[in-house]
Design a binder for these strands. Structure first.
Ligand code: MN
Ligand code: MN
Ligand code: MN
Ligand code: MN
Lengths: 220, 220
DNA sequence: ACTTATTTTTAGGTTCATCTAAAAATTTAT
DNA sequence: ATAAATTTTTAGATGAACCTAAAAATAAGT
């Protein structure tokens, strides 16, 4: 029940993020890189998180979230994503503008606030970037997307999310008219550079580089 | 332009709050009491705020906000009150529940966020407790209220705000049916304990103790 | 005016979150 | 297997924000 600081919460989120795209323990160096701090600072913090029972930590062996740590990480991710929905749906921000604000809003501590915000937003399942919103109990819904880059000609699919969350990538998608929810159909793939000719259904023809296609998630 | 910390922002708000209900400089002790810290800690912070040009400070002489300090204090108060409006009007919280959450939300740093929130709320002039919302430029609108306790029989006035912001006082008002915006008419004042017999127009008779009446603001 | 009481400041410490530099453990390469 | 490279940890500092205890300045009381 001890109170977790702003900084501790960010470490938990970062451990979760790294762990979810690899298997095995998360390394001190990976955390130092992600949090833009030095490895020595990470070690310090890992000891503190281990003392609080939020991570499993053995020196030189990397870390893994405990059940409690994961639950906490997911409630913070839940808050982050709900605030992003609020900022886009209610305040009219672009999906490329909301991440930094959500980084601060996610630390506002009130369960009742999250509950009411969720209701106010009509219990959204996904944030503006297509990422699933963890449940109130702290469970991540598992969604299985494919990358647009993995489709073959004549396949049709709905744009569901992005892997690259950078403002520049999101702005590029805006400029191309690639909006989440659109249905796209692959017409042709260049064997030279794997660039794709796609149609945004019903009839908007579009050229998509492999760099873009491999960062676009689709479902079908 | 240097960044102001969470803590510094709270000190500025506190200095403003104390200064606005007295004349002359704000004492170290008063600040220590309000911030629930020790006088020595306050002195530390005052030096830092003075270095940043946010307060006028001469040792042993108390402090006063600089123009820049006051502008900053008022933008934070603006954010606090806008978030309180959001929590009550949009999320349906009671006016007795929102202060603590607003204490955290007010520190989320984004001018664009405040601008859009203000528009989303339809540019409210007052927060749920009847306190005026400072302008985007950092100016406090001056409103002049009277206390209900200062009215005499047959006077009628509109309930505009509260002086006591405690949850227990606000809940007591809820229980009595004393809502901001109601029009009340004083019928009788006891010369013994200054308690009031009032009518919530059109016809709800009510007994109001002096303790309550002196914390209720009315205008007319 | 002088003594006493109060307020404020200084001095010296603590904890959190960071840092650099050096030591220790682990991993990789020959 | 031994040496070299890499990763991780320890050791020792720093700054922010707090603390207690003692000293200094100001205000009050006689
Ligand atoms: Mn985000
Ligand atoms: Mn997102
Ligand atoms: Mn408040
Ligand atoms: Mn208020």
């Amino acid at each position: 029940m001890a109170t977790t600081s702003f900084t501790e919460e960010n470490y938990l989120k970062t451990i979760y993020a790294i762990a979810s795209r690899q298997q095995g323990e998360v390394s001190t160096n990976a955390l130092a890189e992600m949090t833009a701090t030095r490895a020595a600072s990470v070690t310090d913090m890992l000891k503190r998180l281990a003392d609080k029972g939020l991570i499993h930590y053995k020196r030189y062996q990397g870390v893994r979230l405990t059940d409690e740590g994961e639950r906490l990480a997911l409630t913070i991710i839940r808050r982050h994503r709900l605030w992003e929905v609020f900022l886009v749906d209610k305040l009219g921000f672009g999906w490329d503008q909301v991440h930094e604000m959500a980084e601060e809003l996610e630390h506002v501590r009130s369960d009742e606030l999250v509950t009411r915000l969720d209701a106010f937003l009509n219990h959204p399942q996904f944030d503006p970037h297509g990422d699933p919103i963890p449940t109130p109990a702290g469970l991540m819904p598992d969604v299985t997307y494919r990358k647009l880059a993995d489709l073959v000609p004549t396949e049709e699919a709905c744009l569901m999310g992005v892997l690259d969350h950078s403002a520049s990538f999101l702005q590029h998608l805006d400029a191309c008219g690639l909006t989440l929810g659109s249905v796209v159909k692959v017409s042709e793939i260049s064997s030279f550079d794997r660039s794709m000719q796609v149609t945004i259904v019903p009839d908007q023809a579009l050229f998509v580089s492999h760099d873009v296609a491999k960062n676009l998630l689709v479902s079908e």
